[in-house]
Design a protein around this nucleic acid. Structure first.
Lengths: 214, 214
DNA sequence: AGACTTATTGACATGCCGTCAACAGAGCGC
DNA sequence: GCGCTCTGTTGACGGCATGTCAATAAGTCT
C-alpha cells in the first residue's frame, strides 16, 4: 500500500519557492527587527533547508532589501483616477486615498517606515528613496504641478519633505493613537494646501535655486 | 634604563574607559550600519580587549542604545531664550535655531535620524520617542501653547508630526541637496504657522478628541 | 523502466557574541 | 623595598549565525 503521498522533499518551480520564502521573510521581518530574525528562522518558517534561502537570495541583506521593496511597494495599488475638481478637492481626495491605503496595510506599512533602514544602511536607504520618488511624482500629478519643468528638483524635494510629514502624522494616528483620522486628515490637507498655494509660489518667484545668499 | 613608559595594559578609571569606548562606538555607528559594526571593531578602535566592551555595556544592543541616546541628545544644547515678539517672530526664531543646530552637527544628526532604529527595534524606537517628546515640549513652549491643558495629547501629537516634516525637510537640504537653506526656512515657517493658526484651532473647536464617529 | 536535469539538502569553515576565570597594574601597610 | 589587596583588564571557551559547495533526490523525458 503506497501511503507515501508526502515525500520529504517537495520540488517547486523556482519562482514559486522564491515567492514562498519571500512571503515568510516579509512576515518575520514585519514582526521582529533585522538582527533578531535569523535565516534559520526564515528557513524553518518556510519548511526549507537554510541553504536554500542563500541559494535564491544570496546574502541575508539582499533578502532584506527585497523584503523592504515589497513592503513599500504594497501601497502602489495606484491612485488611478483623481477627481477633476479644483485644487482643494484633489488634495482632499489624495489625502483620503493615502489614509485608506496606510490604514488597510497598516502593519506592513508601519514596519516598512519604522524599519527605516537597519541602522542607516546605504542600500536600504536607496530602496526607500526610490519609493519616495515614485510617491512624490504621483503627488505632483495629483496637485497639478507635474509639468513645471524649470523648478522640478525643488518641487520634488518639497513634496518628498511633505511625505515625511504624511508619514509621521500617520504614525501618530496608527501607532501612538494620539490623533484621530479626522484630525490627521485636517492636518495633512491644510498643510498640503499651504505648501502648494503659499510656499511653492514663493520659492518659484523667490531667490535663486542654488545661490547661497540672495 | 627603564624605557618601559608604555605598559601593555593601561589602567583607566571606569568612567574614563567607558567614555572612551562609547566615543569610538559613536564614531563607528555613525559611519557604518548596525550589523556592519562588530564589537571586535569597536574594541580594536579603542585599543581594548573585546570582553571589556561587554563588561561595561552588557550586550551589543545595549551599547547601541547608548550610542543612539548620545546622538539624539547632542542637539539638546537648549533653546534658552526665545524672542518675546509675536507668533511669526518666535516661529521664525525657532526654525532658525533648529536649522543652525542640525547644520552644525549635521553628520551625527543625520546618522541618528537616518538610523531610525535598526530595523524597527522596540527599544531603539523608545529612545527616539523620548527624544521626540522633549523636542515637542520645547516647540510647544516656543509657540506659546504650553499651557493648553485640555487638548494636550493632540497638540503634542501634531507637534511630533511636524517634527517629522522638519526632519525630512532638513534631510532634503543637508543630504540630498535638493533644497537650499532659504527654501527650507520658508517651508518650515509657513507650515508651522499654518498648523498653529489654522489646524490647531480647528481641532480644538472641532469634533471630539476620541470619539470614533461624531 | 532508465537516464537526465536541477531543485534541494546537509555539512563545513569562518566569524561574531556573551561569559568567566585568571592576570596584572596601582595603591597601601609594613 | 616587599608583599598584600583591590579591581580594571585580558584571553579563551561555548554557542550561534552566516555563506559556500559538493552530494542527493524529485520530477520529467525518452
Amino acid at each position: 500500500m503506497s501511503v507515501e503521498t508526502a515525500p520529504r522533499r517537495r520540488r517547486l518551480e523556482p519562482d514559486a519557492r522564491r515567492g514562498q520564502i519571500l512571503a515568510c521573510a516579509v512576515r518575520l521581518f514585519g514582526e521582529r527587527a533585522y538582527p533578531d530574525v535569523s535565516t534559520t528562522d526564515i528557513a524553518r518558517e518556510a519548511g526549507v533547508a537554510r541553504g536554500l534561502v542563500n541559494h535564491y537570495f544570496g546574502t541575508k541583506k539582499d533578502l532584506y532589501l527585497e523584503v523592504v521593496r515589497v513592503m513599500v511597494t504594497i501601497p502602489e495599488v495606484a491612485l488611478e483616477r483623481l477627481p477633476k475638481g479644483d485644487l482643494r478637492t484633489r488634495v482632499d481626495a489624495s489625502v483620503t486615498w493615502f489614509l485608506d491605503v496606510v490604514s488597510r496595510h497598516s502593519t506592513s506599512w508601519l514596519a516598512a517606515v519604522t524599519a527605516r533602514g537597519m541602522g542607516g544602511d546605504a542600500d536600504v536607504e536607496r530602496v526607500l528613496a526610490e519609493a519616495e520618488e515614485v510617491a512624490a511624482d504621483r503627488m505632483l500629478v495629483a496637485v497639478g504641478l507635474a509639468d513645471e519643468a524649470e523648478h522640478r528638483e525643488e518641487l520634488r524635494g518639497m513634496v518628498r519633505a511633505y511625505g515625511g510629514l504624511a508619514t509621521s502624522t500617520a504614525r501618530e494616528w496608527l501607532q501612538r493613537g494620539a490623533l484621530t483620522r479626522a484630525q490627521v486628515h485636517v492636518l495633512l490637507t491644510t498643510t498640503l494646501l499651504t505648501i502648494v498655494e503659499q510656499v511653492i509660489p514663493q520659492v518659484i518667484a523667490g531667490d535663486g535655486t542654488s545661490r547661497p545668499q540672495g
